[in-house]
């Protein structure tokens, strides 16, 4: 029996929803969860003795975490593997860049300005490094961590383009002819940085990806909130149990090399 903890932000909810289905498939993995809001998680710390303590801004934070998890902290030393979800090596900045810039070496989409591919790549390198510093500050040295990114926004976020500028930028990026090249560069940069820091990296499963940095919208329907209940239909960032199951299966098969019992 292997003990797997899923530790992280609100994106843990998708995996918690899938726990029943996953455990039926993989009976030799015992699942546990510890989740909180992103700011509590991302600025939390793993102490010298291996206990993760969230970053608490208020009594409300503390009560919420206790209500969700039954505890305010969690001892990581009792787990064989820890799947960390909630850091976001987001490509949003690139999406904003491509709103009014074309890539010099890429396609002409009629933008008034252009930048070089080298500049776009340098931005990616920097955003990855910046997020990685948060990761290392939070997690410290490796303790069988398996990192995965927060899910890419659902492609359905385009529905909010008119009233929500970030949605406009993200959906434009997903449809941009040069996005696949930048997305591939970003994937390699993230993987290389995370593994270079000594952690294992689990990319979002390819069959959940519908566009560069875009998740198939089917996975955002009926997404759950970590505090219980469902996410707003305008969310498009949190995923459902089907997505959670895909993630857990990926951990099991790709990282732990465990074949499901149902096979």
């Amino acid at each position: 029996m292997s003990r797997l903890l899923v530790l992280g932000s609100s994106h843990v909810a998708a995996m918690k929803q899938a726990a029943g289905a996953f455990c039926a498939e993989c009976r030799d993995i015992e699942l546990s969860f510890f989740a909180m809001a992103a700011p509590n998680f991302r600025l939390g710390r793993v102490g010298k003795r291996g206990v993760f303590a969230p970053h608490l801004r208020s009594r409300v934070d503390r009560d919420f975490i206790e209500n969700v998890n039954g505890a305010r902290t969690i001892d990581l030393t009792t787990f064989d593997h820890i799947l960390v979800v909630g850091f976001r090596f987001s490509l949003s900045d690139l999406a904003w860049l491509l709103m009014d810039h074309d890539i010099l070496e890429g396609s002409d989409t009629g933008k008034a300005l252009h930048c070089s591919e080298a500049f776009a790549q340098a931005c990616i390198d920097q955003l990855v490094a910046r997020e990685l510093s948060l990761v290392t500050n939070c997690l410290g040295q490796n303790r069988n961590y398996i990192l995965t990114d927060a899910p890419y926004p659902a492609v359905s976020i385009a529905a909010r383009s008119e009233e929500y500028a970030p949605a406009r930028a993200l959906s434009a990026f997903m449809a941009h002819p040069d996005a696949p090249v930048l997305f591939e560069y970003w994937q390699k940069a993230v993987s290389s940085a995370v593994e270079g820091a000594g952690y294992r990296w689990l990319p979002q499963p390819a069959d959940t990806v519908a566009a560069p940095f875009g998740t198939n919208a089917d996975f955002s329907r009926d997404a759950a909130h970590i505090g219980g209940g469902g996410m707003d239909t305008a969310d498009h960032r949190h995923m459902n149990a089907d997505f959670g199951l895909k993630m857990l299966q990926a951990v099991s098969m790709d990282i732990l090399e465990n074949v499901p019992d149902t096979a």
């Binding site: 900045d93 860049l97 009014d100 930048c115 500049f119 340098a122 931005c123």
Partner: peptide, 19 residues
């Protein structure tokens, strides 16, 4: 007349200037 989006200009100051 060759600006970056504010988000990039503000978050990537040194990098932007390098270019």
């Amino acid at each position: 007349t060759e600006p970056l989006p504010d988000r990039i200009a503000n978050r990537y100051v040194a990098l932007s200037q390098k270019f």
